[in-house]
């Protein structure tokens, strides 16, 4: 055999590397990713009357309900001088981003089997584009949060204790790792559901449960108090405290409102967990993308 003849562009074979993250190839398809993002954003509220207003309505109404139920009826205190509405809105804004990333990526294979069954492009483009589209949505919702923030500080006297912390510069990192956890988990779930559909039922219901375990509508301090006086089992307290979502949410509320649990060691823990989840997701996703079309 001629050595020149062995100069192949690529090989299609059943063998595969454990992590096949071909960055060069993904870069070549970057236009496709942005087009998918555009498609996701533009087509979401087509033929609705309120259109993009839904971006605002969703978190606002949820916050109002949460404030009514948890703070006014159940009497959960969000701290003196911290408006409960603002407290809830902060949690929900970031939580929504995570939720949408997770749910949006968790049916990647099933939802796109028509496209995936016909043409090849790096499959990982799909979940990444979901995360990026949600980032845009998150940006809009963050703007809503900022508007109410300004309103409460300057036009009411409820927000006496609210203060921005110096660590605000960490915000992009918090958002990044939140997205990474959503992406990692979503890729794992989407890969497993190609063969076993059971998981897809678990997702909607599991996300709901996760929300209650992520300190969205209550401060983590409350859980610590309840564990201390014995009304909540210790294990539940630990699970909630070391849930990476809780840590990110608490950190977010700390840097914006000045209340919440914040430590660098916990943030490093979050970074480690999210990288691990993402890597796992990538490995499983790579394994699946090669042959899922036969089993889906």
């Amino acid at each position: 055999m001629n050595t020149k003849n062995e100069n192949w562009l690529y090989t299609i074979s059943p063998k595969q590397k454990l992590i096949d993250f071909n960055f060069k190839e993904i870069w070549r398809y970057k236009d496709l990713m942005f087009l998918f993002v555009k498609r996701n954003v533009v087509t979401l509220y087509k033929q609705t009357i309120l259109g993009p207003l839904w971006y605002f309505i969703q978190p606002l109404f949820t916050s109002v309900i949460f404030t009514l139920v948890f703070n006014n009826i159940a009497n959960i205190s969000t701290g003196d001088g911290i408006p409960s509405f603002l407290f809830n809105l902060a949690g929900i804004t970031l939580w929504n981003y995570f939720k949408e990333c997770l749910i949006g990526t968790s049916d990647t294979f099933r939802k796109n089997q028509n496209i995936f069954g016909k043409v090849y492009f790096p499959r990982v483009i799909m979940p990444i584009s979901v995360v990026v589209s949600n980032l845009i949505k998150f940006g809009i919702q963050l703007l809503v949060f900022v508007c109410f923030y300004i309103y409460f500080i300057f036009f009411t006297n409820q927000a006496t204790q609210v203060s921005i912390q110096n660590e605000l510069f960490l915000l992009p990192l918090l958002v990044f790792f939140m997205g990474l956890i959503g992406l990692g988990l979503g890729m794992i779930i989407s890969s497993m559901t190609t063969k076993y559909r059971d998981l897809s039922y678990l997702v909607t219901f599991g996300v709901q449960l996760l929300m209650y375990a992520s300190a969205i509508m209550y401060p983590l301090d409350l859980i610590k108090e309840k564990v201390a006086d014995g009304s909540i089992p210790k294990i539940a307290g630990v699970l909630i405290e070391y849930n990476p979502i809780t840590i990110i949410i608490e950190a977010f509320r700390f840097i914006t409102l000045g209340v919440g649990d914040f430590s660098f060691s916990k943030l490093i823990y979050v970074v480690a967990v999210s990288l691990l989840l993402f890597l796992m997701g990538l490995i499983i996703f790579n394994k699946t993308e090669k042959s899922f079309i036969d089993t889906v």
Partner: peptide
């Protein structure tokens, strides 16, 4: 489908330039 990389072969390989 194998040629267009939609699914991978069970055995063997395709090399392309």
């Amino acid at each position: 489908k194998i040629l267009s990389r939609v699914t991978s072969p069970t055995t063997g390989e395709i090399k392309t330039r």
